[in-house]
Design a protein around this nucleic acid. Sequence first.
DNA 1: CCTACCGATCGGTAGG
DNA 2: CCTACCGATCGGTAGG
Lengths: 170, 170
Amino acid sequence: MRDLASEVGMEAASLYNHIKSKEEILNEICFSLANTYSDKMDEVYPSDNTPIEKVKKLIALHIQINSMSSPLATVMNDEWRHLTEPCKSQFLDMRKRYEYLFTEIIQQGVKRGEIKAVDPRIALYTLLSSVRWLQHWYHANRDLDVNDIKENIMEMFLTGLVADQYEWKP
Amino acid sequence: MRDLASEVGMEAASLYNHIKSKEEILNEICFSLANTYSDKMDEVYPSDNTPIEKVKKLIALHIQINSMSSPLATVMNDEWRHLTEPCKSQFLDMRKRYEYLFTEIIQQGVKRGEIKAVDPRIALYTLLSSVRWLQHWYHANRDLDVNDIKENIMEMFLTGLVADQYEWKP
DNA sequence: CCTACCGATCGGTAGG
DNA sequence: CCTACCGATCGGTAGG
């Protein structure tokens, strides 16, 4: 709180005329971002895009948030554990629902023959994890363009690293 | 330190007969794991495997460490920032070298036509990030088998999510 | 290995 | 918005 205060040019004690507690800030950040994700899911999930198009739209949002709102994303990703009840449970419920709908999308893709028969949970967590650390390495590699990153990551996930002509299987 | 002490059944003060400082523990954990990664790289990099085989071997190590030694991996991944100089610089140098050799492997694969023309840094960070969070979701999904996870992740990265027969490009 | 205790720091309050 | 200050907690030391 002392650091925050000096950043905005006041004493720590004065912050408490603007906020109720340190945790109020944490709540604000976590739920603001969680709502952004939920809203996008509520828009994408029932749409008539193909499952692969849906996955692409959601991954694009993750890339966007983790590269643009990265300090907020860092707080949500690393500090949600310090939410107190009942907020913590509410937050986890939102996350659970988001992950459930995301696996549903993957599973629908598998059923329709668009997506390979991977384990949907493994696919989901691998996707989410990989874009999660954008916040950390993106700022150390500023010369990279967000759209380049987006296209490269999409390409990797959708068609893999192995070159089309190359016969890699033993 | 109070928590650690009670976990091993002593008073916090007594811990200091076994260790020099809290930070000594952090150093121990960070460098023990960093050495494991470096050693594997020194073995794999100059070997006569194909670049893709090398990538597979390194990713397998990351999966192994992040699922088996997960508490140690969590400490290294999240707390290395609190290393003090000169240890911090030394740690970052090791990481930089590891990442450099890893991108070299990817770049060689691209040059040899085995790996698609992705940006090697983006590919690297996406690979590393995705397996990094194994520690967090693996224990919440205990029914998953480590080898299943390994195979699924490899498959995703190497040949992608899109089913072979499916024409997805617009 | 424990008791007793230290200086620093933290989130936060009282009172103006 | 500030000064002054609180109780709790933290890493660590002295001395046995």
